[in-house]
Design a protein around this nucleic acid. Sequence first.
DNA 1: GAAACGTGGAC
DNA 2: TGTCCAAGTTT
Length: 366
Amino acid sequence: MTASAAAKIKRQAAPAESADRPALLLDWYDRHRRRLPWRPLAGERADPYRVWLSEIMLQQTGVKTVGPYFEKFVARWPDVAALGRASVDDVLRMWAGLGYYSRARNLHACAVAVLRDHGGIFPDTEGGLRQLPGIGPYTAKAIAAIAFDIRTMPVDGNIERVVSRLYAVEEPLPQAKPRIQELAATLLGPARAGDSAQALMDIGSSICTPKKPACALCPLNEDCAARLLGDQETFPRKAPKKSGDLRRGAAFIVTRGDELLVRTRPEKGLLGGMTEVPGSEWLAGQDDKEALKQAPALTAISRWHRKTGVVTHVFTHFPLELVVYAATVPARTRPPDGMRWVPIATLADEALPNVMRKAIAHGLDI
DNA sequence: GAAACGTGGAC
DNA sequence: TGTCCAAGTTT
């Protein structure tokens, strides 16, 4: 067999090997990368603090949502030392509305640990990063690659989708995670690991989208297995997820002049450490009358006024329906144990999750 | 390994 | 309108 014949057979047998995917990826990134608040200009060194902060905020949260929060945080706390000296309550207040509030606690705990145990300098290894609160396997790899140019491939939801399509991975998620991690790592070149990962993320978010991917624009389209099958949208395979049962409860809006009665939720669990108005438990199959029995014990209240309609909210694992009861009490009425009065005018500064903002708006007719 | 953990946007 | 998805971690 001649050399050219052998080469032809090889091309046909293994087209994936004919393209230098890592180089294609980096070329594409240099021309099309998104400009984002936490990304340095091309060629500039990444700031580990900004990389870390953005990675924590971006966990299960969209780029567009994170933008304003990221700007607020870096304006108030320009480096990890400043954040480490802040109070958890201040951090929680700034985080309010972003969701997944344990991230905010872990963010603060991480800043404190970096300050106390590492002299205010982030560890520059994957293993060192992994030890810090709020930094799991993905985030450790992401910071290592993006901030420290360590040759490792973080795999997020975007990269999972891109890689599962590129190789037409039939195994469903989450079982396929180890396999996808391996395949993703083959897209790493000899250098610029962070840019390789961010190239895949950008492609995943703007080209290799969940619905109707724009394959014509993809630098890896020539030997994408899913595209060759004409089956792009069906990857990644995943088992259907079950939604939780509807839970019901009551929220109690008690006003004393221009002040509102609130309390702080326990540190652990749903909306941990956040501010709320007093309320009943949230249970499946609970009715209004049952929920009203759990109203705060205030003898000054002569009657509850049930507001028309309900407040609905959807959490990750269950939908919620809240009925709202309102009442007013005289000036100088003492708050029940564990509760406090806050001026309605300063509610914007409270660590109020969105479900509570909805309930308060409904109860106050705002 | 599965379940808990927020919220908003897109279709 | 309901469903899916978004730079996952913790228990």
